[in-house]
């Protein structure tokens, strides 16, 4: 599943302000709510669902990257966004480093496979050091959008 099929351009955020795990997840979700991708009344519920997954093992995979994800009945298709933090967020990552690049993903429970396909694509692309570096260096949401588009077309 390509980025264009789940990353919502309007919700991409460069310059995240939060410095803690739950706060940054809430900030990413805020952007999805603000751009109309998620319902306001589900917001807290989704944050808790993501936090629950984090408790089983942090999705901070190292190299300053985290991929918080969950399934949630309030969405009808995979909804994702990308966030960049310049200061870094404490995320209990594998390598103990602060996280600068976030991929957040929420998938509907009734579409088995989609969730895995999206995670598989994120994983595949994140293997590429250049891809990660370009994203972390991005100054605007358009920059990010362009890197994702190139990855989709490559």
């Amino acid at each position: 599943m390509k980025f264009r099929n789940f990353v919502k351009t309007e919700a991409i955020k460069v310059g995240l302000v939060s410095t803690e795990k739950e706060a940054v997840i809430r900030e990413l979700i805020d952007n999805l709510v603000a751009s109309g991708q998620l319902k306001k009344d589900q917001q807290e519920n989704i944050v808790q669902a993501i936090m629950k997954r984090e408790e089983l093992g942090s999705t901070g995979i190292g190299r300053g990257i985290a991929v918080p994800h969950t399934k949630h009945p309030s969405v009808t298709e995979p909804v994702g966004t990308v966030g960049v933090s310049h200061t870094g967020v404490e995320f209990q990552s594998l390598d103990g480093e602060k996280v600068h690049l976030f991929f957040l993903l929420i998938s509907p429970p009734d579409r088995p496979g989609d969730h895995l396909r999206a995670l598989e694509n994120i994983s595949k692309q994140l293997q590429d050091e250049m891809f990660c570096r370009f994203l972390k260096q991005s100054k605007t949401a358009e920059d990010i959008q362009q890197v994702l588009e190139e990855a989709d077309n490559a």
């Binding site: 997954r53 089983l56 995979i61 969730h115 293997q127 050091e129």
Partner: peptide, 24 residues
């Protein structure tokens, strides 16, 4: 510059039921 294997850590005490719900 090398390619990394992207892996998600998870606790070994997670049950099969929990895991199945997480990832279908």
């Amino acid at each position: 510059s090398q390619e990394f294997l992207v892996e998600f850590p998870i606790r070994a005490t997670v049950t099969i039921q929990e895991f199945e719900q997480l990832y279908d």
